[in-house]
Write a protein that binds this DNA or RNA. Structure first.
Lengths: 332, 332
DNA sequence: TTGAAAGCGGTACCAT
DNA sequence: ATGGTACCGCTTTCAA
């Protein structure tokens, strides 16, 4: 099996070198020969042997993707796969292949990377306690890490831009006429704090921040529910609520409805994360999508830019997307 | 960069051949030399060049995975990625690499497969209208296709076993004392029909089947809700409901609760699919997990079995797993 | 513009 | 048990 350039060379009675050059569109070869070679290559069903090519050129044209952190979840969906679409799509556009790896007890990240000869690596789902990750610094390969900070020569950090995400929420709500905008936070979690700070800063700049509209949950749906339920009794209620997570937002909606109030008629609500169920909740949930597609795309682009010696920024924040659904209403 | 076997050979003053044999644990080489070679290889930081090896042996040790059908979804989660865990894990255990591909306008499946020289291919998310898939028959490679039938030499069909899944539901409910077990079906959808037939067959064998307990939804959450809401008025109600999908089950629960009835006190409910939100619903939803992990594992195993010339079965049905949560109650 | 030949880093056959 | 060497399929330098 397998037609090789040698076969083509013999058939056309020319040299292997000429065939190779023709097939690779090199300059120093006549157009006529190029066409002839390409034509017969197609006729003969030629398909290049990538391993021979890679051996000769010492370029693997391959990126590695480590998909980690799946064992820490209980029943929840694994978020990490969402980046894969953007990664594959972009890699293909650069004619790169994607090799996927997972946790491996027997081999270190470095060993795997070296063995497979990838030209760049993307890490998804790195655990904050992961010590082994440090060793990849020595590789000097371009590396993109999603949602995890690691300082190093050609290492980038990618994440969605919390500030812009929150800003899009507040802008949207103010456009709809809301001025009393509450927030449901999630305790001390890093991610909750970041979103809360953005919220506070933005509202303060508009003189709309009020401590009394800050409600403290704990990232569970139940905590959102309780807040929604208690809301009924308050005399001074916000007209809109921004929940730092979709799950609490959905709990909140249920809690509010449990008292006979209506969403969005009585209060508008916006979540954050764009979990699958928000699409089906009642009403469907307006939320912020972290834009994992673009994060994946940029992870690849960073690596390509390093390979092509372009200037790069090691801190890449992606603008999240506001997904407008039915849980918000224009007032006034 | 890159220590090669030649470097090792020079250092130890032996031949490349000896080094190669030692590193590959061949029989015809002394143990002493083996140890010595391995030791210095490690010292020198040797890492094999996989491309050279693959070129020489003509074995790629690589599997390709096509991840398809992502553009047909609106807001829902993409299910296909769930198979990836099992695929990667199993491939690693066979020392195979995984190359992932996606839709590609410019190249056919066959072209990609041939170019990348994979030894086997797994298809995820093949569209039922996909004509191009037929061409892969000519490849004669071992191919595993999840949830899609394609007849061919070394082509396997993998899916979860609907019958066993439904059986585990009914068995569980009868164990809990239920005899009036209703079902919410989803119209004419293939998947709904399969589950309904299993339900009917199993209940009939126990003389528990009654047409009046069959409720017709349409796979939307809303349809489940309506059924739940109407249930209140019926004089003869089932004590348990099996919904052919989680989404309808969750809608049903909401509908039932809207009338002040309680789950699972007034009626037990079981879903199917194990969507992420079932874990958070109130009460959390007992459901059937299709066991995508094992499907992924078996997809790889099939390919390996073909490669190793073992006997294989081209129709692989995986036993789903019943996930017991809080939406069912023992009666009597 | 074309071709001969060396080399990429291994493997494997055949001698020794 | 160890080594010499051809070869896997392609690229690339240098000469023609």
């Amino acid at each position: 099996m397998g037609v090789t350039i040698k076969d083509i060379a013999i058939k056309l009675n020319i040299s292997k070198a000429a065939v190779s050059k023709a097939l690779n569109d090199k300059e120093d070869i006549s157009i006529e020969l190029k066409d002839k070679v390409k034509k017969t290559a197609k006729e003969m069903g030629y398909s290049p042997n990538y391993f021979a090519k890679k051996l000769a050129t010492k370029k693997s044209n391959t990126l590695g993707v480590f998909i980690l952190g799946k064992e820490n979840l209980k029943g929840e969906e694994y978020y990490g796969y969402k980046f894969l679409d953007g990664i594959i799509e972009t890699a293909v556009s650069y004619a790169y292949d994607i090799l996927v790896f997972s946790e491996n007890k027997n081999k270190s990240y470095t060993e795997i990377i070296r063995e497979k000869m990838v030209e760049g690596v993307i890490f998804i789902g790195v655990d904050s306690e992961d010590k082994k990750i440090n060793s990849v610094k020595d590789l000097l390969l371009p590396i993109s890490i999603i949602d995890f900070h690691l300082k190093g020569e050609n290492i980038s950090f990618l994440s969605s831009d919390s500030y812009k995400g929150v800003k899009s929420v507040i802008d949207y709500l103010t456009e709809l006429g809301h001025e009393k905008i509450g927030i449901i936070i999630g305790g001390e979690a890093e991610i909750s704090k970041r979103r809360y700070f953005a919220y506070k800063k933005i509202l303060e700049s508009k003189n709309l921040f009020h401590k009394k509209y800050v409600y403290e949950g704990d990232f569970t749906k139940k905590s959102g529910y309780e807040i929604g339920k208690r809301l009924f009794r308050k005399k001074d209620r916000p007209t809109a609520i921004f929940s730092v997570s979709d799950l609490m937002a959905i709990g909140f909606i249920e809690g509010v409805k449990a008292n006979g109030m209506k969403i969005p008629e009585d209060i508008s609500v916006v979540g954050f994360d764009n979990i699958g169920f928000g699409y089906y909740s009642n009403p469907s949930l307006t939320t912020v999508d972290q834009n994992p597609l673009e994060i994946g795309q940029m992870a690849v682009k960073y690596i390509m830019d390093v390979i092509e010696n372009k200037n790069v920024n090691n801190e890449i924040l992606i603008e999240p997307k506001l997904i407008k659904r039915k849980s918000c209403k224009k007032i006034k």
